[in-house]
């Protein structure tokens, strides 16, 4: 029995191949991330077959480097953990297959992890979790409000009905000629412009906690196309600022409404879009004003994107709760948290 509580974690759900060693679910000993962004930029978005091919090129390098950098060997490990969904099936399969092999070869327990729980646990490296708790998860593939009454229990109370927030950034980025992924550039441009276009704020009035970004996206694209036809050039900084303001307004508004309905001790902000400065600043301000007693934990910037350290942190909790996968573990591309029925 290993004395140290070390988990070797795998994450390959989209276009990052990542392997990490995490101790006690709270300490990162190594977190190797090989990103394929330069490859998918050629196509303006992630091409699943290309992503799967890159994962297999990098998987063993990432394993070896994660162990070397952590200065540990297989015999030091307590468990192997892996993201088994949601994500791209071909990408997930490389990580799931590799993790099963390592677990089997060294007779270690295998812990399955939901990728979204992983994103949430990126915030665990900032501070301890206190329940009940709420999380706003915003990424290229997901936009969700998750309520956690206690540890290891996740309930979706609001989610996007169409595009994820990050997806909307990439789509309007394409219209502005910004390389995939567009979030960071749009965020930087937004800081230099003003909300002069007043794009619609979707579902702000409706009495639920769901999001929608397709109306905003269409309004944005129409505005740019109409100006093009008139031969008019619009200020890209103002366009970015107006788009971002609309996204941030909706995310902040729904989050505050959720906090109203579900009193919690903590709010977690996580996922790729959680790195957005506009969103961070806005939530900081609103929370200080309306919920000064609710502690906000923001995932560290460098752990907002996909990485295996966050999977290792979530796996430590899953391990304690007895979650174990057998060797027939398969990728589940559509894996989801439960949706609250009452809403």
């Amino acid at each position: 029995m290993a004395e140290r509580k070390l988990i070797l974690a795998f994450e390959t759900s989209c276009d990052e191949t990542s392997v990490a060693v995490v101790e006690d679910g709270t300490k990162i000993l190594s977190n190797i991330v090989a990103t394929q962004i330069d490859s998918h930029q050629r196509f303006g978005g992630v091409v699943p077959e290309v992503a799967s091919r890159h994962h297999i090129e990098w998987i063993t390098r990432c394993i070896d480097q994660a162990l070397a950098e952590a200065g540990v060997d297989y015999s030091d490990l307590m468990a192997v953990a892996v993201t088994y969904g949601p994500g791209l099936v071909g990408s997930l399969l490389v990580g799931v297959t590799a993790a099963k092999v390592v677990a089997w070869a060294h007779q270690l327990p295998l812990v399955p992890v939901n990728h979204m729980a992983g994103h949430l646990y990126a915030a665990r490296f900032v501070g301890e979790f206190k329940y009940p708790q709420m999380a706003l998860l915003v990424s290229g593939g997901h936009t969700e409000l998750v309520y956690m009454p206690r540890e290891h229990e996740y309930e979706i109370i609001g989610e996007t009905r169409d595009d994820a927030a990050g997806e909307a950034y990439d789509k309007i980025g394409r219209v502005l000629g910004v390389n995939y992924p567009a979030g960071k550039t749009i965020d930087e441009w937004a800081a230099q412009g003003q909300d002069t276009f007043h794009f619609p704020r979707a579902m702000e009035k409706e009495d639920n906690l769901d999001f929608s970004f397709s109306g905003l996206k269409s309004a944005f694209i129409n505005t740019v196309h109409n100006a093009d036809q008139r031969g008019e050039e619009l200020n890209k900084f103002d366009l970015a600022a107006s788009f971002q303001q609309s996204v941030v307004d909706v995310l902040a508004e729904k989050t505050l409404r959720a906090l109203d309905q579900y009193p919690v001790k903590q709010l977690i902000l996580a996922g790729g879009v959680a790195a957005n400065h506009g969103l961070r600043t806005r939530l900081d301000r609103e929370m200080a004003k309306h919920y000064p007693d609710v502690l906000m934990l923001q995932a560290p910037l460098k752990l907002c994107g996909d990485n295996a350290a966050m999977i290792g942190a979530a796996a430590a909790v899953n391990y304690q709760h007895g979650d174990r996968a057998a060797l027939d573990l398969n990728a589940v591309p559509g894996l989801m948290f439960d949706r609250m029925k009452s809403m």
């Binding site: 799967s52 091919r53 590799a98 390592v102």
Partner: peptide
């Protein structure tokens, strides 16, 4: 099949690497 040969190759190379 792309998925098929990837499963076998991932299994084989990870096993060879780890052992």
């Amino acid at each position: 099949s792309y998925t098929g040969i990837r499963i076998a190759a991932t299994t084989a190379k990870t096993l060879a690497d780890t052992l």
